[in-house]
Computed example of a mutant assay.
Amino acid sequence: MSELTHLDKYGQAHMVDVGSKANTQREARAEAFVQMHAETLALIHSGDHKKGDVLAVARIAGIQAAKKCADLIPLCHPLMLTHIKVELTPEPEHQRVRIESCCRLVGQTGVEMEALTAATVAALTLYDMCKAVDKGMIITGARVLEKTGGKSGHYRVDEQ
């Protein structure tokens, strides 16, 4: 296992200096899920929710969140993202919405945090918009699915 890069030799938090790293194409995909009652999912899927298009609002929230990641996570670098995609897919067979995000750039540091932030803020937005009809929703499974680029190379979660 690698050392924690955000701690100096005295155990103090610091922002990693990426100035000497090469610019490379980097991409990360992440996912999260929002479990809910079947009736809530049907309301979202039909577009009949009184607050409007829940999936569209959550998608925009996820995109905005990826762009603001460095403002939310103290030691993240501000990044010039070249691509952000957030997809929300109702999965009635599991009574949930699956959220998948993808972030891309050419730069000196990875975009895993931006992808995770996009997926989780989209999930939080979906919860916020639907809490009046289903306070028991559960946000689960936030994780990085895949990342490419950089010194550590390619990572892909085992599809089990």
Rank of each mutant, 00 (worst) to 15 (best):
S2Q: 15
S2E: 15
S2W: 13
E3C: 09
L7D: 06
D8E: 10
Q12R: 15
H14G: 12
M15L: 10
V18N: 09
G19V: 03
S20Q: 15
S20F: 09
A22E: 14
A22Q: 13
N23M: 08
T24L: 09
E27F: 04
A28N: 05
R29L: 12
M36S: 07
M36R: 04
H37E: 12
H37M: 13
T40N: 11
T40G: 11
L41S: 12
L43T: 08
I44R: 06
H45P: 08
K50H: 14
K50Q: 15
G52Y: 00
L55H: 08
L55K: 10
R59I: 04
I60D: 04
G62C: 02
A65R: 01
K67C: 01
K67Y: 02
A70D: 06
D71T: 00
D71Q: 04
P74C: 05
C76A: 09
T82G: 14
T82H: 11
H83Y: 12
H83L: 13
I84P: 03
K85C: 12
V86I: 10
L88W: 07
T89N: 10
E91C: 07
E93D: 15
H94L: 14
Q95L: 03
R96Q: 14
V97Q: 03
I99M: 00
S101G: 10
T109S: 09
G110R: 06
V111M: 03
M113P: 06
E114Q: 00
A115H: 14
T117L: 10
A118T: 06
A119Q: 01
V121D: 03
L126I: 00
D128R: 07
D128G: 02
V133M: 11
V133K: 07
D134Q: 09
M137A: 01
M137S: 07
M137T: 03
M137R: 04
I138Y: 05
I139H: 02
R143H: 13
E146P: 11
E146H: 13
E146S: 14
T148C: 11
T148V: 11
T148E: 11
G149V: 07
K151V: 00
R156S: 15
Q160P: 12
